[in-house]
């Protein structure tokens, strides 16, 4: 089975977001970048399928040389090789299109990726790839079984799950809960340094969206703090009244 995992390089979840001087982007100063956490589930699932059915796992990313770090992390987990599509990301559609152009030449049986990148949180790439590659896709998947040439995926939806049958090759976006990603061992981190990363130079097509500004949400909070001081009943009554009469939410 040939499996492609699309990975992205994103600011760590502990990042405090500061807006850059251009007012449109995050200020990268002091920000630590990591392999997108949802992509770890995708890489893990690919490795488990390879262990079961044999085959090859290729990690693909779009971006600058820095994105090699994300690929390297996937290689350290156990992926066989990497592909870096070197291009400026003009917008999300352009990234999906760059990925699709490369994936078309690869003939994968399965394409895996995280359900969203934790930077722009758009959840756009998997559905866009589905259309661009004319492949079935299931997103936000928490369980995946392969039965012959059919993939059976469970997608998380409001209040439960949906069971989806897809003809392969297909695209699956991973949600937390799909598996427990492995930590790369030290020998595997060393081995990953020797694994090949192919570089493909590409040009993104014209963007379909443009960023006008980035800013931080400023919401004024009332900040009324009550102290229990030995009388939990009194503060509980007080809070219930405040929620009822002042905030009017109950």
């Amino acid at each position: 089975m040939k499996i492609i995992v699309c990975v992205s390089h994103v600011p760590d979840t502990t990042t405090k977001v500061n807006v850059a001087a251009d007012g449109k982007n995050i200020d990268p100063a002091g920000v630590k970048f990591i392999l997108n956490p949802y992509d770890e589930f995708a890489v893990e699932e690919a490795l488990r399928l390879k262990e079961k059915y044999s085959g090859e796992v290729i990690a693909v990313s779009v971006g600058s040389d820095a994105s090699k770090e994300a690929i390297r992390q996937a290689l350290a987990m156990g992926a066989d090789k990497g592909i870096l599509i070197k291009a400026d990301k003009s917008d999300t559609f352009a990234v999906a299109e760059l990925l699709a152009n490369t994936l078309k030449t690869q003939g994968a049986d399965l394409i895996l990726l995280g359900k969203q990148s934790i930077d722009f949180d758009g959840m756009e790439i998997a559905p866009m790839l589905a259309e661009l590659l004319d492949m079935p896709a299931a997103t936000v998947v928490v369980s995946l079984q392969i039965e012959g040439s059919t993939a059976i995926a469970e997608k998380e939806v409001e209040g439960g799950k949906e069971k989806i049958a897809l003809s392969m090759p297909c695209i699956i976006s991973a949600q937390k809960g799909l598996n427990d990603p492995r930590y790369p061992s030290l020998p595997n981190i060393m081995k990953a340094k020797q694994k090949p990363i192919e570089e493909i130079a590409a040009t993104a097509s014209a963007p379909r969206t443009s960023v006008i500004k980035m800013d931080k949400p400023e919401k004024k909070r009332i900040g009324k703090i009550l102290q229990v001081d030995g009388n939990a009943n009194a503060v509980a009554q007080q809070l219930a009244q405040l929620l009822h009469e002042e905030a009017k939410v109950i």
Partner: peptide, 17 residues
């Protein structure tokens, strides 16, 4: 406007198509 970085920031965008 849509929230990014899980709501740590907002991005305001224009669609050009």
């Amino acid at each position: 406007t849509h929230p990014v970085y899980a709501g740590k920031a907002n991005v305001t965008m224009e669609v050009t198509t």
